[in-house]
Design a protein around this nucleic acid. Structure first.
Lengths: 254, 254
DNA sequence: CATGTCGATTGACCTGCATCAAGGACGACC
DNA sequence: GGTCGTCCTTGATGCAGGTCAATCGACATG
């Protein structure tokens, strides 16, 4: 386990900053997140408390039960929320992709471990200042309520997956989700897997071996194709969705 | 499937009303819910839009995807939230016990089926009026945010259970949760199971048979005792918690 | 080029839970 | 009391996925 450290709030390269600006243009955490309805002066306040932080793949951002002194939006990269049983069994509880929100306004400590699954950039807001802003800004609280309801929906889709889907359906559902999140206007034919096989197993309530076997099976049957370890292509999204096991439109996570 | 009907808003016996009053005294949905910090005039407004509804065990309150025209707090009884795959597999996504809250402020339709698991009384608030009140009452939005974060925590505990726990641990965890919710100051030695074996299976991502077998095993080993089908006694809560598989303090659901 | 590491794959085997199938227990209703 | 119907329990069997272990790239390092 890497030590939890804190590059944020200061040390960022020029390039990092540019990339961050690009994704957070105008309103700092724009997609899915807080400021869809912000007034200019509120945006100024957010801007004032905002900073960027980077972590490299595998680094821990907070340990289970520790304080998370900020809330944040993922600019790029991928982070995972996991919880463990004492004997070492691990289950992923959340997957954060660009534009997803991290943090529980009003709650200082994280009831799960947060780890950077890939190199990661967060757009962060100092917690205390952010919470003060919420108090004074009614529609912000509503926006956050919206967001946590979305997360709740995602968690519940995920429960259905964990409780009732077969290994093949689980893997197919995950791949479909990744493709959906990566999709452009041209269609979701290609994506980079944001997670290792091990992380996928943790996500899906399976073992590495089972994930690997299901992936090769789907590849063998022509439903997906793989480029190296992380590249994923899907010639026919519909076929993949059938394997995923239900009407699932890919709405599987927050 | 029973047809979704709507006894609420009017037809209640004297006794029902008394019971409801008792649980909802003063502030209508008090525990875990909205009004911990309400002003007197806000309470009046809530009072004005409030009504009670009853359902008997097995009745459906809303179908998956239908509109739920109210938000509510459970006064007594037990309701379940479930979602199904097309082929009939069912997973429970939420369990509502007295003082729990039902409904997603700002969202009209339920993404799950809501069924009364036992005879059930809800304290209901007409949706539109409730949402108007939220708009004018900033701290209500914060309170609701709190509540949905609690639900999210519960859903995530549940994910860990579904993804990584053994059948025995799952059953023990559920029983511990029931005992905890039923506990009085004197300790949680006895409780009535709010769910049938089938519903427990749906909750835990297992089959009826497996649930039944694990229950008999726990009974045979003296960890629990059963009175009839629904009565549950636990001579030693600590022993049960060990079977539940982790530090679990019983915080498993919203 | 040899060697080591780390992730992914593949195979052989085993087991926990699902599945299929019979009973029991208990209440409702005639 | 007899006969359902519903829910629960128990047994026998099978299989999906876990476990253990070997191998295979891909990439780094000496």
């Amino acid at each position: 386990m890497t030590q939890p450290h804190f590059k944020g709030f200061n040390g960022m390269s020029r390039i990092d900053l540019d990339l961050a600006k690009q994704s957070c243009a105008g309103c700092p955490i724009r997609h899915r997140a807080v400021c869809a309805t912000c007034e200019p002066d509120e945006l100024d306040q957010l801007e004032a408390m905002k900073s960027y932080g980077t972590w490299s793949a595998g680094e821990t951002i907070v340990l289970e039960g520790e304080k998370l002194p900020f809330v944040a939006s993922v600019v790029f990269g991928c982070a995972t929320l996991t919880r463990s049983l004492e004997d070492g069994r691990v289950q992923m509880l959340g997957l954060l992709l660009p534009s997803d929100f991290l943090g529980r306004p009003g709650r200082g400590t994280a009831p799960y471990e947060v780890v950077a699954a890939t190199d990661l950039t967060l757009c962060m807001f100092e917690r205390d200042a952010f919470e003060r802003l919420i108090e004074d800004t009614p529609h912000l609280a509503l926006r956050l309520l919206e967001m946590s309801l979305d997360e709740l929906d995602a968690a519940r889709d995920w429960m259905l997956l964990l409780g009732r889907k077969t290994a093949r359906e689980k893997v197919a559902t995950f791949l479909a989700y990744v493709l959906k999140r990566a999709s452009t206007a041209h269609g979701p034919l290609r994506a980079d897997l944001p997670l290792s096989r091990g992380d996928m197993a943790s996500y899906l309530g399976l073992t590495i071996e089972t994930v690997s076997r299901q992936m090769t099976a789907l590849k063998r049957e022509g439903i997906i194709d793989l480029e190296g370890k992380r590249g994923l292509l899907c010639p026919d999204m519909a076929a993949l969705l059938i394997e995923a096991g239900d009407d699932d439109d890919g709405a599987v996570i927050a």
